[in-house]
Simulated assay, not measured.
Amino acid sequence: MNVKSIFLLVFILAFSSASLLAQVKSEREHRIRKSQFPEKPLLTIEKKVEDARQMRFYKEIDSNEVSYKVKFKKDRLRYGIKFNNDSKIEGIEFEIKPVDIPNDSYSQIIAYLEKNFEKYRVQKIHQQYLTKGNDIDQSLKDAFQNLMLPSITYKFAVKGKKSGKNVEKFEIIFNAEGKLELIKKALPPNYDHVLY
């Protein structure tokens, strides 16, 4: 084998392993009218969520799927409930501050951000509750009581610069212990026009 062949082989192996390890997905959400929101989730929200104010509806476009989200205020917190395309609840989230995350978990999250970004700024943090099968009532109760369960996740909206790249927006999800679960690159504002 000559030097060019070895270099090419090393390059291909490095590139393929890096792409396998990177869990990057892209997504974007845009606001829609209440009339454009699927009927079944709308009835679920109206029936199960009391005292909701400032209700807004969104369509979320991922690189390979469409989902819907309703955002509202309840008891001074900003909640969001996400539904898949089949109108089933995928998860419930609400906005939190860094002080709301246990110290050990937050330290691990910050260590990850500092290691993987040259510069970064956390724009928002959400605490997420995934639905437990079809038990919507229990999932809503857990979220509205702000229970610290081992199954919760933290979603960070981060604007950051990785080495040698431009500043980009990311959505990064960590588990309750502060370990990375998923990273999604935010799509440009006009991405939905490309899909249709």
Rank of each mutant, 00 (worst) to 15 (best):
residue 1 M to G: 15
residue 2 N to L: 14
residue 3 V to L: 15
residue 7 F to A: 14
residue 8 L to M: 02
residue 12 I to H: 05
residue 13 L to K: 06
residue 14 A to S: 09
residue 16 S to M: 15
residue 18 A to R: 12
residue 18 A to E: 08
residue 21 L to I: 14
residue 24 V to R: 08
residue 24 V to I: 15
residue 30 H to N: 09
residue 30 H to V: 14
residue 30 H to M: 09
residue 31 R to V: 11
residue 31 R to E: 11
residue 33 R to Q: 11
residue 34 K to E: 10
residue 35 S to P: 04
residue 36 Q to P: 08
residue 40 K to L: 09
residue 43 L to K: 10
residue 44 T to I: 03
residue 48 K to F: 03
residue 48 K to C: 07
residue 53 R to F: 02
residue 53 R to H: 05
residue 54 Q to T: 08
residue 62 D to T: 14
residue 62 D to A: 15
residue 69 K to I: 15
residue 73 K to A: 10
residue 74 K to V: 09
residue 77 L to C: 03
residue 83 F to L: 06
residue 85 N to C: 04
residue 87 S to D: 14
residue 89 I to Y: 03
residue 90 E to I: 04
residue 92 I to E: 05
residue 95 E to D: 03
residue 96 I to G: 01
residue 99 V to R: 12
residue 100 D to N: 11
residue 103 N to M: 12
residue 103 N to P: 12
residue 103 N to C: 09
residue 110 I to Q: 10
residue 113 L to S: 11
residue 115 K to M: 07
residue 117 F to A: 02
residue 117 F to G: 04
residue 120 Y to E: 04
residue 121 R to W: 12
residue 122 V to C: 00
residue 122 V to Q: 05
residue 126 H to Y: 08
residue 132 K to G: 00
residue 133 G to Y: 09
residue 134 N to T: 08
residue 134 N to A: 07
residue 146 N to H: 07
residue 146 N to I: 00
residue 146 N to Y: 00
residue 146 N to C: 07
residue 147 L to I: 06
residue 152 I to W: 03
residue 153 T to V: 12
residue 153 T to C: 12
residue 157 A to H: 14
residue 162 K to W: 02
residue 163 S to D: 00
residue 169 K to R: 11
residue 173 I to C: 01
residue 176 A to N: 04
residue 178 G to W: 13
residue 179 K to R: 07
residue 179 K to D: 12
residue 181 E to K: 14
residue 182 L to K: 11
residue 183 I to E: 13
residue 187 L to I: 04
residue 188 P to T: 14
residue 189 P to Y: 01
residue 190 N to G: 06
residue 193 H to I: 00
